[in-house]
Simulated scan of single mutants.
Amino acid sequence: MFEKIFVGVMVVAGMLTLTMLYAAVSPEAAIQSYFNETPEGAMASVVVPNWGILIGLMGALLIYGAFHPPSRKVALVVAGTSKIAFIALILMQGERYLAGLQTAVIVDSVMIVLFVIYLIFGKPGAANA
């Protein structure tokens, strides 16, 4: 039962993470929305879209891991590590970006806690029973 519930958790986490593909489609709007700044030059045309794609790939990895049990542990560890890095980088900026990204920090923190619980108590490599 725990395994089946966690498949749903991973799918929801993956879908939420996939929303960051928005930064690949509309980098200027994404940066304005999240950071209240206007990107210029390479940041606007290369770095931000690439950032959005990389985060989107973490979402896809979570969804893949949900339905492919042998990949579940690596999906949770890689996506969780990415989320930890994001949160740390935002928190290191103090209040500068927290207002625009507070919800993302909270949601990612909840995901990390759920991922850790599953890695400790679940069977990450086991087939769904």
Rank of each mutant, 00 (worst) to 15 (best):
20 M>C: 11
32 Q>E: 11
25 V>P: 04
29 A>D: 10
30 A>E: 00
22 Y>P: 04
70 P>C: 01
52 G>T: 08
62 L>W: 07
39 P>R: 04
33 S>F: 15
19 T>C: 08
103 T>W: 15
37 E>D: 09
58 M>S: 08
84 I>N: 00
42 A>V: 14
93 Q>Y: 11
80 G>E: 01
21 L>Q: 02
62 L>Y: 07
57 L>T: 05
23 A>F: 12
45 S>Q: 12
69 P>F: 08
63 I>E: 01
91 L>G: 06
100 G>I: 05
98 L>A: 05
45 S>E: 10
41 G>N: 04
46 V>R: 11
23 A>M: 07
37 E>Y: 14
88 A>W: 12
89 L>K: 15
31 I>E: 03
80 G>D: 01
54 L>N: 10
66 A>T: 04
30 A>K: 05
31 I>R: 10
103 T>P: 02
81 T>W: 10
56 G>D: 00
46 V>K: 11
65 G>W: 05
44 A>D: 09
34 Y>Q: 07
91 L>H: 09
42 A>Y: 14
58 M>F: 14
71 S>N: 05
51 W>L: 14
95 E>G: 10
69 P>S: 01
96 R>Q: 12
35 F>Q: 08
28 E>W: 13
35 F>E: 03
101 L>H: 09
67 F>D: 04
63 I>Y: 06
55 I>G: 02
84 I>T: 09
62 L>N: 07
24 A>S: 12
92 M>Q: 13
55 I>S: 03
34 Y>V: 06
54 L>K: 03
95 E>N: 14
58 M>L: 15
46 V>D: 11
65 G>R: 05
88 A>M: 12
55 I>A: 09
47 V>Q: 09
66 A>V: 09
72 R>W: 04
100 G>Q: 02
59 G>I: 07
97 Y>R: 04
47 V>W: 15
35 F>P: 06
68 H>S: 10
28 E>T: 13
63 I>D: 05
96 R>S: 04
29 A>T: 12
64 Y>M: 03
97 Y>P: 00
45 S>I: 14
67 F>N: 08
35 F>Y: 15
79 A>C: 02
66 A>I: 09
45 S>A: 12
77 V>Y: 04
64 Y>P: 02
